[in-house]
């Protein structure tokens, strides 16, 4: 099923030399990666590796310090505002906590992009919303409020909302976080189904190894703002890099201890400690 290995489909996301800062702290140090059409790219990394920030850049939510991001061939930050709105209609995002609007029912949440971007009549929108709920196995739940759903159901409803406009690229932020293994597995299967049935390019940020290896066509491993690895899951397993093996075997990193640095941290000298990962 590995589409990228057979031929070379066009890249739908091209990131070049992406550098970004929070205040004075540099989060990404010149990241370059391509995500090609129809693949599931899993972005991995420990906490503080910059993967969530990287995802925000891929979703065009944050402007980088330098570097370019091309989505579907368009330079995101070179686009006029209207162009960016149009581009965003081709992206779908399932946020970590679902990010469903609590004042609307599940059905209204899913129909919101249709309401805002199309001139369809309500009946058609309702039918489309039910179709998408069917895809995520939530049919019949459209009249409930988000607060009445379980964690797994909220995530699936968020996926239904993300795919309502039939996006070209679908992003998942930590799909299995906070879910039990069974529900988490169902979500993984759903992600695979979405790629196969709808031909979407899917980009998943996760730190769950098992889920990552189940769904990934290719993986990107980020570590302290740098790309450590890009390749297939098999290549990742075969990697000889010590850091990658630590990650795969869930060993904590033995950070090199610098005595001066350690002392400064203990004494709480803030100016010196600036630039430390959170």
């Amino acid at each position: 099923m590995n589409a990228s290995a057979q031929s070379s489909p066009p890249a739908v996301i091209e990131v070049r030399d992406l550098v970004t800062h929070y205040g004075t702290r540099q989060i990404l140090n010149g990241v370059s990666v391509d995500i090609v059409q129809g693949e599931i790219m899993v972005i991995m990394g420990g906490s503080g590796s910059g993967k969530s920030t990287f995802l925000r850049h891929l979703m065009a939510l944050q402007r980088p310090t330098s570097g370019t991001i091309k989505i579907l061939g368009q330079d995101v930050w070179g686009l006029p505002q209207k162009g960016l709105f149009e581009l965003r209609k081709k992206l779908g995002v399932a946020f970590q906590g679902g990010a469903l609007f609590s004042s609307m029912t599940v059905g209204e949440n899913i129909m919101l992009p249709l309401f805002e971007h199309t001139k369809l009549d309500r009946k058609t929108m309702e039918i489309m919303a039910r179709m998408k709920l069917e895809v995520v196995d939530l049919s019949g739940f459209e009249d409930l409020m988000p607060s009445e759903l379980s964690g797994g159901m909220i995530k699936r409803a968020a996926v239904a909302r993300a795919i309502i406009m039939d996006p070209r690229i679908l992003f998942f932020d930590e799909p299995s976080a906070g879910l039990d293994p069974v529900v988490s597995k169902q979500l993984d299967e759903m992600i695979l189904r979405l790629r196969d049935a709808m031909g979407m390019t899917i980009c998943v940020v996760t730190h769950e190894l098992e889920s990552a290896f189940t769904i990934a066509d290719r993986m990107t491993v980020l570590d302290r703002g740098d790309i450590l690895f890009v390749g297939t899951p098999d290549e990742l397993r075969a990697s000889k890099s010590e850091r990658i093996q630590n990650l795969l075997n869930r060993r904590s990193e033995e950070a090199e201890i610098d005595a001066d640095e350690y002392l400064r941290r203990l004494t709480g000298d803030k100016e010196e400690a600036e630039g430390m990962p959170r």
Binding site: M59, E86, R88, F95, L112
Partner: peptide
Amino acid sequence: GTMKINQEIDALEVMGINPVRF
């Protein structure tokens, strides 16, 4: 504030809906 914490504002933005307008 709650919408921001729950990433609902981000969600609007990525749906192509300007939060100020909406």
